[in-house]
Design a binder for these strands. Structure first.
Lengths: 341, 341
DNA sequence: CGGGGGATTGTTACCGGTCACAGTGACCGG
DNA sequence: CCGGTCACTGTGACCGGTAACAATCCCCCG
């Protein structure tokens, strides 16, 4: 295979020194237009492309940032990755991804280390299993932004406003007249599960409604089957609630399928609010009222923060992106007369 | 920031030459165990990590492959990316991704070129908008594997057996007794749309059923709304069919929502078969009979082929991965007598 | 006791860029 | 006519590794 042409090949062809070629490439002013043109022609003729590797050697820069994600095939994180990639490219950087899933034994830090060895200039970690701290690993001077992670010193966190989302969802149910509102949380290792649950509690508390622990059920995973099973437990244990706030749309859909199999109708018997606003949410039966999150923007914001940090040396403050309740048909006023109403 | 230690720092500390350090790092045998130990201690003490950049300079290798994808947030391609990433890492490579979407003006070749400049050693392109040819671009000696792409000389293609999937789906409907079977295809720019449609035709032909063009409708996109609109056109134009084979689960779900809004029931009035077996497919109402594709494995196979090509210099043959029909409740025999209302 | 040969280690060049500094020639003023 | 300045270009070192080859040491044999 014909070796890639180097800067010296171009120099020879143009009859100048390699340094002059370098100057032309980097747009230095101190080159006569005649020489510049000659060099450019030579570059074109040889279809020369500067080697980023060689460049990186002196500049010690790779123009790449890394994304370590729990599960790139999860809709939320796929969107995040897409957003991060777009922002990175917009600013002349490459995004290198690593998906951790299925390697449960290996924690994220191993991948972070791998990326650091690869000399990425910044790192994004999405929903780390373990709490991330800055000093950790040889993360030494590589700026790190975490998505959906616990706050920690030295780590910038980008997230959606899970607490606010939980509050909005439950506020909406309360406004429709519901009082006995159940919830299915996500895995409690995830900060977002806590935050949404907090929002749920806050909302009920503010409305003067007692928060009954028996109405809080946990889904051990993000799967539809987990949602279905959680709903089954809820119905067996504490029937009589009129609404459900689910951690995610998938869990909501799983829960609805359990309701259907028991002959309960949504929203006539039980109203349901989901979370995520995945594409199918608008087309389920009934269309799902849910909380929409700006997933792309989370990725963009994370990448943007990392890139700022690379440029300026200081990591900015984290960001909490707003969410929005999307009202569809899965919520109605409680039909069954309640003891209080 | 304290500069990263170099091989020469380690050498000095261990009291040897940098070359000896290099030998230790690369596991050459010709180093006395005493020296080896001394060097390793120095490496450890300085927490020295070899620079892949400098390595890449001499070896001209980056140990990375690139993935250019139409839309990384699409479920299929997210899974493909996850599979490719796993296979790449398993073999000591990194996966660099670029998502093309939202930059409709720029075709894939621009991104491929970008990746080549970055000196990736191999390339995977997923569902290219434009036909890809090997000679194109300075793809010169970089092995290229395409996913869901048209066959072309010099390009290895990995795909799922779309034709077989279409045939299996329609065969199943025929076995249930259906004769008037409609189909909604995907965008006709995608080879998979053609292939699945071919499978549909082959199956009908083999059963001696006339293929009516009025029963073939096209969805202009991959969205649920496209499926819904296509179903509306189909019902307006050629009512009376008893079954639908949809290009994807999302399109199927969109189509079902249109049926529901017209008071038609699935599968009592119309049976539906989807494609993809996305997670929600098992939890829709009714649960969707669909064609399951080994998405991860497509990614793994593509990465594997690229990596083989890097090692051996020759690109192997493409692969067509088998699909599997998953039978759920969205298909019934036609004209099931309505036992009530 | 000198030399061959293997084991071990050091020296130097090189990968393909960038950086610091040195040169060259034209033009200008004194 | 000569020195100085400016615009432009070239030279050599260096980034942090690897490759090729040379050098050294030690052992053993003739």
């Amino acid at each position: 295979m014909a070796r890639q042409p180097t800067i010296r090949d171009v120099a020879e062809r143009a009859g100048v020194s390699h340094q002059t070629v370098s100057r032309v490439i980097n747009g230095h002013e101190l080159v006569s237009s005649a020489t510049r043109e000659r060099v450019q022609r030579a570059i074109h003729e040889l279809s020369y492309v500067p080697s980023p590797i060689a460049r990186g050697l002196t500049s010690n820069r790779t123009h790449s940032i890394g994304l370590v994600s729990t599960d790139i095939s999860d809709h939320f994180f796929a969107q995040v990755a897409a957003g991060a990639e777009i922002e990175a490219r917009r600013r002349g950087y490459y995004l290198v991804i690593a998906s951790v899933e299925e390697h449960a034994e290996a924690d994220e830090t191993a991948y972070l280390r791998l990326m650091v060895e690869r000399r990425v200039e910044g790192l994004i970690v999405a929903r780390p299993r373990l709490p991330i701290t800055a000093g950790q690993v040889p993360l030494q001077r590589v700026p790190l932004v975490a998505i959906a992670a616990r706050e920690a010193p030295g780590v910038t966190v980008v997230d959606v406003d899970n607490r606010g989302g939980g509050r909005e969802a439950v506020d909406f149910l309360l406004r429709q007249g519901h009082r006995r509102i159940a919830t299915i949380t996500g895995p409690m290792e995830w900060p977002s599960s806590h935050a949404r649950l907090e929002g749920y509690r806050e909302s009920l508390y503010a409305a003067g409604v007692t928060v009954s622990p028996s109405l809080v059920e946990q889904a051990p995973g993000w799967d539809l089957a987990d949602g279905r099973a959680a709903m089954a437990r809820l119905l067996d244990r504490a029937p009589g609630f009129t609404a459900l706030f689910a951690y995610s749309d998938l869990i909501a859909i799983g829960a609805i399928s359990e309701l259907r199999s028991r002959g309960l109708r949504v929203p006539r018997d039980i109203s349901v609010v989901g979370y995520d606003d995945i594409p199918v949410a608008a087309y389920t039966d009934p269309p799902l009222t849910t909380v929409s999150q700006p997933m792309r923007e989370v990725g963009e914001a994370a990448a943007s923060l990392v890139l700022d940090a690379i440029g300026e040396g200081t990591t900015g403050l984290g960001r909490l992106l707003p969410v929005r309740l999307v009202v569809r048909a899965s919520v109605a006023a409680p039909g069954t007369p309640d003891s209080g109403g």
